[in-house]
Design a protein around this nucleic acid. Structure first.
Length: 548
DNA sequence: TCTAACACCTA
DNA sequence: TTAGGTGTTAG
């Protein structure tokens, strides 16, 4: 499975955490309602007590310090380091859905110049928002806590028409992965009240998407740490890796390396002259100034000058809890049958559901994808702006039901005003999560089809954006705290965010709540709270990106 | 910038 | 054995 032994989970994830709660009432989108949010019900407690620790955090930090780059390809590329977490604090018997979305960290396009990342203009329009739902979802807390939860199969693509359900990104843009934990129990079956979820953001997992590595340091880190790149490891020559090229038995210095060396040399000299390297570049600094007027960046003296992704603080996690109540509207996530006609045999390990675009109404008749997909699979859920339905109840087994693994697909909202707001002052940008498969359409596309059949048009669902996918860095409401979420009581909650949830039950369509608003538009200056300190209110991840 | 083919490697 | 994940390279 995707879960691995949690043996190495020694990472004491020093992270920034924040918890919050969102009510279904969209009228207060994003308004932090800290105190009132603390309900004594079990749901709240569970969510607020959940702690998430990033696995191999040190490795992530090494990449982060160098400016993490993630390759994106048409066929989809895995992330490395892989996103793996150790989860604790869940109610063993409660079922949760774990999913990841990757949102723009800002609204800039970047270029790697003079051995450092610089802003190269305004970001391209956001790609269709997609979510990667852990294949084991939904599963009980006992299941999730048993071992590491790995999202290593998540793939990134630059193909806007990607039919496989991979997360679509724009090259040369900065992104921030976010982990969402959604409670999916019978009592809060989609659309019902008391639906809660938490969002965890580890700033060290932010990265810039590229089609080919720009920074040689990153290339080396990948080669040194990714088992699949072992073939590129040199002996001990450090930088001089051996390129094993066809017909070449001799070590050669790659073009990239040569370029890097030149750049490094140049930069080093220039850096000394300017008293800074890489991040010390003025342009870089400017990027992290947000509309809110909150200087998120580069203001942290502790941040390594060479780090393109300054963390700005020790804590690495932004945590947010939401609670959804009394939804009036829900969306359904329906798992549909795989595209048998287009990818008949290709259905192997993973399947994705396309969003319910208007074409493929016939799939509605197959609300449940479970049996159709033979095993746990990542599914793509399309969201729909429409109605919602009753909610189904999930089973209670410890193990997740077969084939509920899905990728949720959300539509993209226009960039919210990119900025960060302090929780206190600014309401969340509503981002409805219309992860629904309602109807129409969720269809499955073989994830393994190698033929890249003609991509289906990506469903563009207006109004949707679950989890704020594809929005500029979501100011995830957060407060800092130690490794993870907030422990006791610390939870700033925001009402009005509706978490899209999907519920699957054999024979019943997955459902999702919509009107999920979660992004505050400002980031709290408080984001720099010391680790372990729990903070109420919203903290923008953006602050982590502040440039040094 | 991006893509496809490639050798090498893991699982 | 084989499917699939790597970075590299040429174009």
């Amino acid at each position: 499975m995707l879960q691995e032994k949690a043996s190495a989970v020694a990472d004491e994830g020093v992270t920034v955490a924040q918890s919050g709660e969102l009510a279904n009432d969209s009228s207060h989108l994003g308004l932090p309602v800290a105190p009132s949010i603390h309900h004594n019900n079990e749901v709240d407690q569970n969510i607020e007590n959940i702690k998430v620790v990033l696995h191999e955090r040190e490795l992530w930090k090494r990449f982060h310090e160098a400016g993490t780059e993630m390759i994106i390809t048409k066929a989809g590329r895995r992330m490395f380091p892989s996103y793996k977490v150790k989860v604790t604090g869940m109610n063993p018997k409660t079922k949760y859905i774990l999913l990841i979305d990757i949102v723009p960290a800002d609204d800039h396009r970047y270029k790697f110049c003079d051995n450092k990342w610089m802003v190269a203009g305004k970001a391209e329009p956001a790609m269709p928002g997609r979510l990667y739902v852990h294949p084991d979802s939904p599963a009980t807390g006992a299941h999730w806590m048993r071992q590491l939860v790995s999202f290593q199969k998540l793939k990134l693509t630059n193909n806007h028409l990607d039919p496989f359900g991979h997360i679509i990104l724009n090259s040369m843009h900065k992104y921030q992965p976010r982990l969402h934990i959604v409670k999916a129990d019978e009592n809060n079956a989609f659309g019902s009240k008391n639906t809660a979820y938490c969002t965890h953001v580890f700033h060290e997992t932010s990265f810039i998407s590229v089609t080919s590595y720009q920074n040689h340091k990153i290339t080396q880190l990948k080669i040194e740490n990714n088992p699949f790149a072992k073939g590129f490891r040199g002996s001990d020559e450090g930088d001089l890796r051996v390129s094993r090229l066809p017909g070449k038995d001799y070590p050669v210095i790659s073009k990239n390396m040569a370029r890097q060396r030149l750049l490094t040399s140049h930069t080093h000299l220039a850096g000394k002259l300017s008293a800074g390297v890489l991040s010390g570049h003025p342009q870089v600094h400017s990027h992290y100034q947000y509309d809110s007027g909150v200087a998120l960046s580069g203001t942290d003296p502790q941040e390594p000058l060479s780090n393109p992704f300054p963390s700005g603080r020790e804590s690495s996690l932004l945590y947010h809890c939401f609670k959804h109540r009394d939804n009036n509207r829900h969306l359904e996530l329906g798992c549909k049958r795989p595209y048998l006609d287009t990818a008949p045999s290709a259905v192997s390990e993973e399947h994705y559901f396309r969003s319910p675009s208007s074409y493929e109404p016939s799939l509605l008749s197959h609300p449940y994808c479970g049996e159709a997909l033979g095993s746990r699979e990542a599914c793509m859920y399309g969201s729909m702006d429409g109605e919602a339905g009753a909610v189904g109840v999930s089973n209670t087994e410890d193990m997740p039901p077969p084939s509920l693994n899905c990728n949720m697909w959300a539509s993209v909202q226009p960039y919210p005003r990119y900025g960060i707001q302090t929780v206190e002052a600014v309401p969340y940008q509503p981002f409805s999560a219309h992860l629904t498969s309602t109807a129409t359409t969720a269809s499955i596309v073989s994830h393994h089809s190698t033929s890249m059949q003609r991509p289906q048009p990506a469903p563009q669902v207006p109004d949707l954006v679950s989890f704020g996918t594809q929005q500029a860095m979501p100011p995830v409401p957060s407060s800092s705290s130690s490794s993870s979420s907030s422990p006791s009581g610390a939870s700033s909650c925001d009402r009005s965010a509706h978490l899209p949830l999907y519920h699957r039950k054999p024979g019943s369509p997955l459902r999702v709540h919509r009107d999920f608003s979660a992004y505050p538009t400002q980031s709290p200056a408080s984001s720099r709270e010391p680790v372990y300190q729990y903070q109420m209110g919203l903290s923008s991840i953006g602050s982590h990106w502040s440039d040094s």
